[in-house]
Write a protein that binds this DNA or RNA. Structure first.
Lengths: 333, 333
DNA sequence: CTGTTAGCGCATTCAT
DNA sequence: ATGAATGCGCTAACAG
């Protein structure tokens, strides 16, 4: 492969002129410039990204650690990050932590060692002992994506789950429901906690009787059976799932309990399936704007790269409630 | 950041000894070795991946270009590639071509310029004029994933679509169907072509009347209306979709034509939805082993890296037919 | 407007 | 078993 020296010799100019032509970093007389361009053409020269990165201490790349590549919502986030990265001339280096704290820490180190200019952590467990120190000590700025930890000093992107859940509850109440059930999931996860908060916000705001509401926080093997029992006892008329895996659980319980969604049982879920329109009935979902979240994370990162010591920002994207039949056709006694 | 020189000075050894200790590239007396290790500990030294890569002309990274990040099947492939890459000590650089030939070419150049050690192209359009030359001329080996182009001189990974489709047809025939319909999609795509071939294989093998079979190759706006018309005319009893987008189209047509899957109409699709069990009825799918495909691509790549001039290999993974209610409960008149 | 020069941090060859 | 010296290809002072 031809290098800058080859080009310089051929164009009969100095090394630095070639560099400046390639990077447009200083004025070069049109004639000289053209000679260089011709030499580049003739030699098939391509800039050595590695040498350049080493010299400038910048790789023009960003790292993304996701906790579950393979999950559709993540695919969309990755997609959004990649999309925005390319637009800023950045390349994306991807790592997967598989929801494992130790692997997350290794992934972070790998990417940092690769000297990515910035790092995005999507749905970080942030639980490995050394990780937090690594992150705060990192020269490359860090952005937290999806899970918001208010106490941490990073730029962050999340959704306004609390508000969305409250709006969903209000909608169900307006449709005539007075006894709701929420499959709330693991309350150590910030997002799921926010959704539970939003649930009670809605209950309060709608002046429902709190004693008549049902909340399931566990997800152990019994949960499904428990739920099936409640379904048989008919202690609620509307069922909400706080995430897609929880929705799967809930729907299986509904089928197991020989109940049908949309008849006398309303159903809604967060984060959305891939083809909610193809279910019968079509399922009301509160979708995560995953692509936009990815794009936003990159925006925060680029901003941060430009002004290192601005205050950390947390951006919350609004979630759209996509109303469909599963909460609409309700006929209450 | 401390560099090797700092470590060398502190351990009172030479630069090269430090290098050899770090990389284990030559024998070092245990005592010396320990001094170096201590100095590394004390300085918090981390190897500079960039300088190392430049010096060795190897980045220990691989590039992956996908044509639609965001699509669940791809998420799984990416996942598989990442998983296998990490196991081989390789980092993954990801780019998306968005099914656009020009962007695909740009992505390939970007990754090659980053000096990835190898490149995997998932569902390549391979249609940009210059791309093929770039690929064959690339110093980094290239693996084609998902779409197999028999005439190209690369290692390739695909599925045995033709065989899977034939098996699916046989199954439907055994369930009593004699008039089938296939939404076959764009026949310029190798995979979709193979599936159509498999369809006719099955028809022939089952001795069905070819004139009674229906194949829709287009996917323009009319296709859905066309399909709805056929559904009303009841010219087939089993409907197969060759891919997930085609399945969406087909199911919309079924609903538009006020027909119900599973009653008198069997339905099956390739590549699978995410939650086929939650549909009513549960949908028979021929799933792509996407994760394994990703893993296999990395294996081929690593093999290739070790023996540059072995003959190109094409690996075809078998597809599993996941039989569910949509093809089972059929009661024919 | 252009050229000369000095490293960036490391792996590696050649000596000892 | 260890060290000294070289250069990978580039950018950015500095000098003219």
């Amino acid at each position: 492969m031809a290098n800058m020296n080859d080009v310089a010799r051929r164009a009969e100019v100095s090394l630095s002129t070639v560099s400046h032509v390639v990077n447009g970093t200083r004025n070069v007389e049109p004639k000289t410039r053209q000679r260089v361009l011709d030499a580049i053409q003739a030699t098939g020269y391509r800039q050595d990204v590695l040498a350049r990165a080493m010299r400038r201490s910048r790789t023009d790349s960003i790292g993304l650690v996701v906790s579950d590549a393979g999950e559709p919502a993540f695919a969309e986030m990755v997609h959004g990050v990649e999309h925005a990265a390319v637009q800023h001339g950045l390349t994306l280096v991807l790592a997967n932590s598989a929801e494992d704290a130790e692997r997350e820490e290794r992934a972070v180190h790998t990417l940092l060692d690769r000297r990515v200019d910035g790092l995005i952590l999507a749905r970080s467990a942030a639980t490995a002992p050394g990780l937090l120190g690594t992150l705060t000590g990192s020269k490359a700025p860090v952005i937290l994506l999806d899970r918001v930890f208010p106490e941490l000093p990073f730029d962050q992107v999340g959704v306004d789950s609390r508000d969305a859940m409250q709006r969903l509850v209000m909608h169900l109440v307006n449709a005539g429901h007075k006894r709701l059930a929420l499959v709330a999931g693991d309350q150590r996860v910030p997002t799921l906690r926010e959704r539970l908060d939003g649930f009670w916000d809605g209950v309060r705001r709608a002046r429902l009787d709190p004693a008549e509401q049902t909340v399931l926080e566990k997800t152990d093997p019994d949960t499904r059976a428990q739920l099936e029992k409640m379904l048989e006892e008919d202690i609620f008329s509307a069922l909400i799932a706080s995430s897609t895996p929880l929705a799967t659980l809930a729907l299986e319980a509904v089928q197991g309990g020989r109940r049908v969604v949309g008849g006398d049982l309303a159903f809604a879920t967060f984060d959305g399936f891939n083809h909610p329109d193809l279910f019968e009935p079509r399922i009301t979902t509160v979708r995560q704007p995953a692509f936009d979240m990815g794009v936003t994370a990159v925006r925060l990162l680029v901003d941060r790269l430009e002004s290192r010591d601005a205050n950390p920002r947390t951006v919350r994207l609004q979630q759209q409630i996509e109303l469909r039949d599963s909460t609409e056709r309700i006929q209450l006694a």
